[in-house]
Amino acid sequence: MKKLKQKGQGMTEYIIIVALIAVSAIGVYSFFGQTIRNQVAGLSAEMSGQDSDTQISAAQQSATDANNVAKEDYNLGNYNEAANKSAAGN
């Protein structure tokens, strides 16, 4: 009976770790998602033989906006403000 409890405990620990990684990934994507999308769009345009200056400029602006939001000090009391700035910049 003891081995079943230990296996359940191990599975629970893995679930917690996966959940933390997922939450972290969502947070990173919410701040840098637009930058990533613009970079991929620029790569796609260049690979198809088109000029990607517009996408490169948009990616640089998105990165600057995300960097400005990341530099500010946020806590649980004003985190929603950061999320709104990030969404508005994207």
Score class of each variant (00 low, 15 high):
18 V>W: 09
89 G>D: 05
22 A>G: 14
64 T>R: 04
37 R>V: 14
70 A>L: 10
60 Q>W: 03
57 S>P: 01
71 K>E: 05
38 N>V: 04
54 T>K: 10
33 G>L: 02
47 M>Y: 07
85 K>Q: 05
24 S>Y: 13
64 T>G: 02
31 F>Y: 15
13 E>F: 08
62 S>L: 10
60 Q>A: 12
71 K>C: 02
13 E>I: 12
24 S>R: 10
6 Q>N: 08
36 I>E: 00
18 V>L: 15
23 V>T: 09
77 G>V: 09
39 Q>F: 04
5 K>C: 03
53 D>Y: 05
32 F>G: 03
76 L>W: 08
85 K>C: 01
45 A>G: 03
85 K>P: 00
48 S>Q: 15
69 V>C: 03
12 T>W: 06
62 S>V: 06
39 Q>S: 10
85 K>D: 00
44 S>C: 03
84 N>M: 08
43 L>D: 03
74 Y>P: 03
32 F>K: 10
26 I>G: 11
77 G>E: 11
36 I>S: 00
82 A>D: 09
33 G>Y: 01
60 Q>T: 12
76 L>P: 00
61 Q>S: 13
12 T>A: 15
66 A>F: 02
20 L>G: 05
65 D>S: 12
49 G>W: 03
12 T>F: 09
30 S>T: 12
32 F>S: 07
42 G>V: 04
84 N>H: 06
62 S>P: 13
41 A>R: 01
59 A>Y: 00
75 N>A: 06
63 A>C: 03
37 R>F: 10
78 N>W: 03
51 D>I: 06
71 K>N: 11
10 G>N: 13
61 Q>M: 14
83 A>C: 06
3 K>N: 10
20 L>H: 03
57 S>Q: 07
25 A>H: 07
42 G>E: 01
21 I>D: 00
23 V>F: 12
63 A>W: 01
8 G>F: 10
30 S>I: 06
9 Q>L: 09
69 V>T: 12
58 A>F: 00
47 M>H: 09
4 L>R: 07
48 S>R: 15
1 M>W: 08
76 L>G: 14
84 N>T: 08
35 T>E: 11
31 F>K: 01
3 K>V: 13
44 S>M: 07
16 I>T: 13
48 S>M: 13
55 Q>E: 14
40 V>R: 08
29 Y>T: 08
81 E>L: 04
26 I>W: 11
8 G>C: 13
39 Q>C: 05
6 Q>K: 12
41 A>D: 07
89 G>A: 13
48 S>T: 14
60 Q>E: 15
31 F>T: 04
38 N>M: 07
23 V>G: 03
37 R>T: 13
44 S>K: 09
71 K>F: 03
8 G>Y: 10
22 A>F: 14
34 Q>N: 14
83 A>H: 05
26 I>K: 15
12 T>E: 08
10 G>R: 11
57 S>E: 11
89 G>R: 05
27 G>Q: 10
68 N>I: 11
7 K>L: 15
70 A>I: 06
77 G>S: 09
57 S>T: 13
7 K>A: 09
62 S>Q: 09
66 A>R: 01
22 A>K: 14
